[in-house]
């Protein structure tokens, strides 16, 4: 069924999803217990995540080496894509600082990309981000990291301030 105005058509779509979930007779329901079990399954994947993130470090090191050599915006994008993936995964497995520092690195790379040039200070700041993420994984710093986490974030902010676009 649709209603039409001079400019818009409104279409009321009959959704079958509600009936589909309602008519199901499976034992599994989305109760708090199921949600907790699903979250536990994510926690169980943390061991796999540590392997994944090691692969990410290999890839981001290679991307960084290419950036250090070429200093071009294509290489910036290469580092960005990996940092963006890392940002999106860390927090799911309890490594909130990987998400936070990954996010900081993404924003920083966007600034450099907008500027169009990557100088030595910018390169150092990128390296500090990557090394800090490695430290977080090597020392198994989960959550906010407490006092150590605060100092790491302060260090990141300090080196970013040295960069003047």
């Amino acid at each position: 069924m649709s209603e039409q105005t001079q400019e818009n058509v409104i279409i009321n779509v009959k959704s079958s999803l509600h009936d589909k979930v309602k008519e199901s007779r499976g034992d599994i329901v989305i109760s708090d217990d199921v949600l907790a079990a699903a979250q536990d399954m994510i926690a169980d994947m943390s061991v796999m995540y540590l392997d994944w993130v090691k692969d990410d470090f290999v890839r981001i090191d290679a991307a960084y080496a290419e950036l250090a050599s070429k200093r071009d915006m294509k290489s910036i994008r290469g580092v960005f894509e990996i940092a963006h993936d890392m940002k999106g995964q860390g927090g799911s497995f309890g490594y909130d600082l990987i998400t936070g520092i990954g996010s900081s690195l993404c924003r920083f790379l966007e600034i450099i990309e907008a500027k169009g040039t990557c100088n030595d200070v910018a390169l150092s700041a990128i390296k500090v981000h990557i090394d800090t993420m490695k430290l977080i994984i090597n020392d198994d710093i989960k959550g906010s990291g407490g006092e150590i986490g605060r100092k790491l974030l302060e260090g990141i902010e300090a080196i970013k301030r040295k960069f003047s676009p």
Binding site: S24, R25, G26, I28, V29, S31
Partner: peptide, 10 residues
């Protein structure tokens, strides 16, 4: 509705 089964959803 409190509980769902997502069994039949693709």
């Amino acid at each position: 509705m409190a509980n769902y089964s997502l069994e039949r959803l693709n």
